[in-house]
């Protein structure tokens, strides 16, 4: 019985990792941009929610709603004025600029909020649980998982049933030809990063409510998110969810055997999957 419980917890944890990964997957899929600051952007968003909660005395969910459009703007400006300059055939500039950004964000947060760990409080929801058949699941983990599915459904609809999505796909396939058709790739990229930042806000909400966070935890979240994206296969959002679940289950199983093996088990699962399927489980695009 304990194993079923462990696996269910792992699947729900996978929802959180899929949320971390969805924004990354979106940006990577459209402009092949690897954002090494993605984890730190999530942590930054969590601090923004915390500031709103503290200043306005509101619920974290409401604070996230206020933070989301603001962070959309941050993402738009970041892409338009910094990251767009790095795009091109050479992979060094985007990697190094976002790596520098990661260090800048971490240290700005350290300077502003100190190294103390913080948490977003959601009151009774934190400890509430539901009996689902033989296992008890926490309401917050369940809510996280459901949010991940909603985000993925929404992103897929955006991609495949809207004109913006058509522009995304066209730019992703061939930016030059898309620009001949009246699409401005620079704007499309900026919008995509803006949307990714909205997803980052949702991820930050659950990051902050489920566990403590401090300015230095970004890179570890980036690695989990990346593992989920790569396991799932480039360009498949459902694949990203599957990747997140694999990492999550591996971590909870590892932790059940020996608490020190939690993170290690997730990484090992990633390596094993990639050795068996170098292009991930559900590759859609060819890189």
């Amino acid at each position: 019985m304990i194993w079923i419980d462990t696996i269910v917890q792992g699947v729900l944890l996978g929802g959180l990792y899929a949320l971390f990964a969805a924004g990354l997957s979106l940006v990577f899929g459209i402009m092949r941009l690897v954002n090494l600051a993605h984890g730190d952007l999530i942590v930054m968003a969590a601090y923004l929610i915390l500031v709103l909660v503290t200043l306005l005395g509101i619920d974290p969910f409401l604070a996230a709603l206020i933070a989301a459009p603001f962070l959309f703007g941050v993402g738009w400006l970041l892409q338009m004025h910094v990251l767009n300059r790095t795009l091109g055939p050479d992979i060094l500039p985007p990697l190094l600029v976002t790596f520098g950004l990661s260090i800048v964000i971490q240290n700005a947060l350290l300077e502003g909020f100190s190294a103390d760990s913080k948490r977003l409080s959601v009151g009774q929801l934190e400890t509430a649980s539901l009996a689902l058949g033989p296992v008890n699941v926490g309401v917050m983990p369940l809510l996280t998982f459901i949010s991940a599915i909603v985000v993925i459904v929404a992103l897929n609809r955006l991609f495949y049933s809207t004109s913006l999505g058509r522009a995304f796909r066209a730019t992703s396939d061939d930016a030059v030809t898309a620009s001949l058709m009246g699409v401005r790739p620079q704007n499309i990229f900026a919008t995509a990063t803006g949307i990714a930042m909205v997803v980052v806000t949702i991820a930050a909400l659950y990051l902050g409510t489920r566990a403590n966070f401090d300015p230095t935890i970004g890179p570890a979240r980036l690695i989990y998110a990346f593992e989920a994206v790569i396991i799932g296969g480039l360009g498949s959002l459902w694949g990203t969810l599957a990747g997140g679940i694999i990492i999550g289950v591996a971590q909870t199983l590892g932790a059940a055997i020996n608490p020190e093996w939690q993170i290690l088990a997730g990484h090992v699962a990633f390596v094993v999957v990639l050795l068996l399927r170098p292009r991930g489980l559900f590759p859609r695009a060819v890189d």
């Binding site: 190094l96 790596f99 520098g100 260090i103 800048v104 240290n107 700005a108 300077e111």
Partner: peptide, 8 residues
């Protein structure tokens, strides 16, 4: 922070 900005 300065080092990161300089790198960027």
């Amino acid at each position: 922070l300065v080092l990161g900005l300089l790198g960027i």
